[in-house]
Amino acid sequence: MSVDIRADGAVLTVTLDRPEKLNALRGEDIEALRAGIGELGGARAIVFRGAGGRAFSAGVDVTEFLALDSPDAAREFISALRAMLADVRRAPVTTLAVIDGACVGAAFELALACDLRVVTTRSRLGLPEIRLGIPSVVDASLLQQYVGLGVAKDLVLTGDLLEATDPRLAGLSTRLVDPSDLDRTTEELLARVTGHTPTVLAAQKRLFETWQNTTLEQGIEISVEEFAGVFEAGETRTALHRYGVEHGITPG
């Protein structure tokens, strides 16, 4: 297993730790990622990073694909990847991909599944699967929402990797930074997103998934219930009271 998972207060850091292979993922790593995501404890954010300074991750190790000797084996492998990415997307806390270097294939899908992405200017991103004779699937379907359908088709059909600074990827990075600013920017962003109540984080994350998968009217209807539901939690009233005190606001 080449995944290191460490909890530090409100932040759970998941490091893809196979630098000699550009942090390429094997089946066991995908399972370890899913297990780690399921053990949040008191975390209010999950950070995904790559070890070694050269790559976030080169995606799935090609030897894993070479070992798939039947459609059933292929379906089992991609279903495990799908489940892991769904867990990232649906996590009840903020998820953040910290990308420095290559971010390719399934690792790019992992970044797309995250809520936020801090990306260095020396990073390169793409979906080269078509060059291997296999399609880009699962959370690659999110790409067009970030960069538009035309650019998504360009990336997928050519299999090209683009520099993070390429204007076509302008909608992808939450923060695009010089490598020297990566850690500072990550810490500043984490400070902004970990101070919220677990109740509101979980509600907001559910709503993102709802908005992704329902009509506008259905999403609005469900959001009304989510809004009402957070008032069942005492921490909602505590947060409201604290905000009022900090800003000199009293109930009308």
Rank of each mutant, 00 (worst) to 15 (best):
V93T: 13
N23S: 02
R44S: 14
A111G: 15
G105R: 01
H241F: 11
V47L: 14
V88D: 08
D87L: 06
P179Q: 02
A58Y: 12
G27H: 03
A164D: 07
T158C: 13
I220W: 09
V47R: 10
A51T: 03
L85V: 06
A102Y: 15
G41M: 03
K153H: 08
A97E: 04
E232P: 02
P179R: 07
A24C: 05
R89M: 05
S141T: 12
R75S: 08
R90P: 11
L125T: 06
T250G: 03
E20K: 05
E76L: 13
L155C: 01
D8V: 10
L40D: 02
P167I: 05
G59M: 10
I30R: 00
G41L: 02
L40C: 02
T185W: 00
A74P: 05
E39K: 11
A203N: 06
L40M: 03
A35G: 08
E221M: 04
N23P: 00
A91G: 13
T185F: 01
V60F: 08
A67G: 08
S136P: 05
D139G: 01
A228R: 15
A24R: 14
R124I: 12
V3W: 00
T215N: 05
L143P: 11
D72T: 09
D4S: 15
L189Y: 09
Q144D: 08
S2W: 03
L169K: 09
